[in-house]
Amino acid sequence: MFSYRIPLRQWITTVVEYLERELGPAFDGFSAFVYFLVDNLKEGMLFLPPIVLILLIAALTWYMAGWKNSIVAFLGLLLSENIGLWEAFVETLALVLSAEILVVTVGLPLGIWSARSDRFNSILRPILDFMQTMPAFVYLIPAVMFFGLGLVPGVVATFVFALPPLIRLTNLGIRQVPIELVEAADAFGATEMQKLLKVQIPVARPTILAGVNQSIMLGLSMVVIAAMIGAGGLGEDVLRGIQRLQVGQGFEAGLVVVILAIILDRITAGLGVRKNAAK
């Protein structure tokens, strides 16, 4: 239709290359930090004998979500160990947890900020829409450019993908705090910080924790995709199953992902309702 083609791809490439060149040291530093985080988590969990970690996770599930869920978790974890996917399981767990730590560190303040500033919120919202609708595979390219191959770009891609729901739900939760509660705090002479810490965040807690839950689930869905850039873990086994058309192997790994998803979902869903529930 037109003889002129907008050089969009050149622009993007230029920007990403420019960032890579200019911010290289910063990316390296960040990369080292993420590696430190995820590697320690992984090694720490692998250091324990499988049965100890299985019992610990089952106990945590019991505490957060009751004995029925705990039994499901316990049996599921035993199965994972039995079919030889224990190390992959731990690797994936470390990846998801590291990504979630980053998500909470970044997402919570951004969510709070956008709840307090309509202007910031109106800037942030289209960015979040963009982040959520962009196919997850696309994140892999810059992640690899900035962080190379391996666990770190996997964590970063997962982080980017899982960030929006926490920001959105934190924003929503704080905005939904009844106006009278905020007025009451103001009327007693609360500072902005007191209002935030003693009223807004505690009251928004269930919604914020629903955001944490959502972002963990999204993070898990990124596991297989992240395996494409060498993040390892269960995703790698699924990928191998695809490449070699080994349906059994692929399903086994997929099943363990489901088990992990169930456990993380029950535990984090429990967080939201625990304290506010009236006896």
Binding site: P178, E180, E183, A187, V203, N276
Partner: peptide, 18 residues
């Protein structure tokens, strides 16, 4: 406000649920 006002009492109580 801290020195002179006893806060406020609201129709829907506005006490903290947690």
């Amino acid at each position: 406000r801290r020195k002179h006002f006893c806060g406020m009492v609201f129709q829907n109580f506005a006490i903290l649920p947690h």
